[in-house]
Write a protein that binds this DNA or RNA. Sequence first.
DNA 1: CGAAACATCCGCCACT
DNA 2: GTAGTGGCGGATGTTT
Length: 321
Amino acid sequence: MTHLVAALAYDLAPAFELAIPGEIFALDIVQSGYQFMLIGAEPGPLRTSSGWSIRTDGDLGCLDQADTIIVPGWRDPAALPSNALIESLRRAAARGARIASLCTGAFVLAAAGLLDGRRATTHWRHAAQLARRYPKIEVDPDVLYVDAGGVLTSGGTAAGLDLCLHLVRLDHGASLANAVARRLLVAPHREGGQAQFAEAAVATESETARLGQSLAELSGSLGEPWSLARLAASASLSVRQYHRVFQAATGATPHQWLLGQRVRAGQRLLEDTSLSIEEVGIRVGFGSPSSFRSHFVRLVHTSPSAYRQTFRVLAPPPTLP
DNA sequence: CGAAACATCCGCCACT
DNA sequence: GTAGTGGCGGATGTTT
């Protein structure tokens, strides 16, 4: 049994966002792990926002079989989706299906009540509106995507790629996700938020140069006990300024960035080596196995040992249970 | 697990 | 006045 990914299509859905899930889940190197379908959420004929017509593989009835449902940008944040669509999504969520929205697709999930009490994001231009209309949602406008465990949302258009790659990483490990990213020529994992794109505020050249060196130094030796003070010193900046410049350039804070890099390096070692989990934690710079474990769980949503069990393979494309 | 020690983050303000 | 920089301190997060 393969994992069924159903992407929704409605009239005037953004063409680019409709293409993203297909581009990733139907790619030859992941194909064996997924079955991909485009689902018409409304009676046809359907057109994309760019005007060309959409041919779907099925209707809302198919959602009952889907393991993952992708909801692309909704045509009008002010309009409510149909009851049929809302009901299908609620049923799927109740059944435990994974639901992910791209861009303004978050408004569809919100209308179905799936985001209440959860953290979520949407395109930064609509984030305030989402928060106002649905006060129970904890809206974070500054991230590329949010994984709230089973319900995922992503920011502006291209952040949908980051989200879909994240799903591949969850299902099949970092190696395959990286292979997909290489294939599509996109960054395997973009750090930081939409803020860096929303504001034109870019670090000056000398800042980026100094920081670039610092970043290289950092990624080169993650195992070292880096502290902010040490980093700032090596870039000849004050701690305060280093912090600012770092955020302007990467969108993440230095410490969060470092933790993310360490966890990712840990994932690779768990996949590619048979070092003990404790040893992996040490090599990537965590002071104790428990802090490695807690950050790993926070970012990857599984424990290091479960992760290794699933992805240890130096083998052909894995299939899901 | 929880508590105490320690570090980071970030608004605010002052200085160049 | 503006732009860049750095220190302070308390809230928040991390480590042990």
